[in-house]
Amino acid sequence: MLSPGTHVRVRFDWPETRGPCHIRTPHFIRGAEGVVERHLGRFPNAEDLAFARPAALLDLYHVRFDQPAIWGEGRAGDALVIELAETWLEPT
């Protein structure tokens, strides 16, 4: 499990280009670097649930991103906080 403060990168991956899928990771955050704020629990993988497939439990994290860094505009210090499953996160 990732502990609070861990620096992570969201996988730069586009499963929608490979066929039908259901994804809970927004486009705008893929490839971005953020910091784990806290572990939110373990939840069945929504990408499988959507197709009624057996869904493994995945660790879900609240991850904080620097908002101006994502868009190239905005006020320093503002943040985006997003729920992301462990399968989308890699250590930096």
Binding site: R24, L40, L60, D78, E83
Partner: peptide, 12 residues
């Protein structure tokens, strides 16, 4: 004041 935008993407 810092602004935190919370995007409800998943289970919460």
């Amino acid at each position: 004041m810092r602004l935190r935008v919370v995007d409800s993407t998943a289970d919460y």
